[in-house]
Amino acid sequence: MADKNAVTIIAFSGDLDKLFASFTIATGAAASGMKVSMFFTFWGLKLIQQEGSKPKGLNWMQKMFSWMVKPGTEKRSLSKLNMFGAGPAMLKKLMKKSKVPSLKEMMTAARSMGVKMTACTTSMEVMGITKESLSPEVDNIAGVTSFLAEAKESSMTLFI
């Protein structure tokens, strides 16, 4: 039986705007007493990778991925109007002005409200992201079966 009070979110995108949507829903749901589980895969993984982490033993392609897409909450780009980083800078300024919480603050809030964060092992392997380089907020690493098992038990699954 699906738990009417559970939501599963796949954070696939590493874009600032889309991650904002994911975390707004996650924190809102957790605040409303829902059980929330977030799975970070592909570009979404870059958010939960610690800033400045340089994993060892990468091949040149993984190094390229690592170099081209910066990890952490501060280095996310926009899905539209990125303009080589000018877009995110302006958006952050606007959000700060109107006191919308930053991605980092939302992540901390989500964490303290018990939102579960899982990193996808396959994407980690492909993109050369090691377990050690993940943010301390991450609860565990798992594969698709774990996601499916949780999604099956929730009433809402979002792919963002």
Partner: peptide
């Protein structure tokens, strides 16, 4: 005041 969605709800849930 000055806080936007979802923060008022988050703060309500905490309080």
């Amino acid at each position: 005041l000055g806080l936007f969605c979802p923060m008022p709800i988050v703060k309500t849930a905490e309080k």
